[in-house]
Design a protein around this nucleic acid. Sequence first.
DNA 1: CGCCGCGCATGACATCTGTCACCCGGCGGT
DNA 2: ACCGCCGGGTGACAGATGTCATGCGCGGCG
Lengths: 204, 204
Amino acid sequence: MTSTIKVLLAEDQSMVREALAALLGLEDDIEVVAQVARGDEVVAAVGAHGVDVALLDIEMPGCTGIEAAARVRRAHPDVKLVVLTTFGRPGYLRSAMEAGADAFLVKDAPAAQLAEAIRKVLAGERVIDPTLAAAALAEGANPLTEREREVLRAAADGSTNAELAQALHLSPGTVRNYLSTAIQKLAARNRAEAVLIAREKGWL
Amino acid sequence: MTSTIKVLLAEDQSMVREALAALLGLEDDIEVVAQVARGDEVVAAVGAHGVDVALLDIEMPGCTGIEAAARVRRAHPDVKLVVLTTFGRPGYLRSAMEAGADAFLVKDAPAAQLAEAIRKVLAGERVIDPTLAAAALAEGANPLTEREREVLRAAADGSTNAELAQALHLSPGTVRNYLSTAIQKLAARNRAEAVLIAREKGWL
DNA sequence: CGCCGCGCATGACATCTGTCACCCGGCGGT
DNA sequence: ACCGCCGGGTGACAGATGTCATGCGCGGCG
């Protein structure tokens, strides 16, 4: 490797983003060439700066880091993708890998792993926390259908059946049916618990 | 100022914590002398390292940064307290100030404000985002009674009335009464929405 | 002292929610 | 051709939830 590794940082909280930039700035083979605060600005920035590795937070306005990863994979297939997240939800790991991520890191892992992961993905390796990988495999795939997920997502803010029906252009009875099957699939006791479980597993 | 400012960093996500340490390490008048990942380790670490300023995240295991701030204030009245948080909830600001914090920063403020805030609190100033301060004053105090808050907190995980009654040693009817008044005070349409509203305002 | 707010409780009532049975049309597999 | 699953719907029913009136005892405040 003759030149430095060019990194893009995508993270919405500027204090965290700039702190991560400072951290990576300590490594002399790594250079942060671009920073963005929104998921939907990632692809353009990757194109504009000749980025080698994109470091993507999941929780971002615009679009999620996972969606951004999928877009970068399509537009710039050679760029390596590191997904970084606060929450070690197995479902997140699964969808990140499906979106084409090369590494998946949680923010409560030691900071040293960050630079290490960047070097490894550039060398063609994949970096995944083995504990999380096991959890993702153990829990199986998302059992919810697309519609069930939609209804559950819409129900997350405490809307009533009537409001959900209106918002989703469905009959109130259908809304209740979907919620009922979702509740059973998730082994929850009501919609509120179902939302919590789905969210925790990264199925929302 | 003849010597460097000694800072304690309390933040549970090690990647963020170490990144913030790297960021502060770039300032030559600031030295991070201690790092902890739990709220209940803060007081001891402050005592052990002769800390000038404690930087406290709110969301932490052990105890919250706000609770930790109150404990430091009691045990070491001269130590300056900077509370740092992901969520700019007015209720958080209010309780942080009541706990004796000297500065209140949100993580999506520019990183430069961090070092600046540390220097300002040491000079005796208070640092508060004016927008947030206005919001905190505008929304008024927490209208919920202690019991209402307890019930709402317990209801947050989707428990039924019967389970809440058992857990809180109350009659099921009483649980419903408390939830009902809480729902009305928060102008919510059901318990789920009430939980969301209370959480967003920092009243939980 | 009287009044009010809080904690706690009961009973009655209307509505919301969750479940179940059953219906249709379409699409993919065997 | 048949089965199963999905999207969408209806009707019925039990139980959970939200509201209201009312009651009691306690403590603070004018």
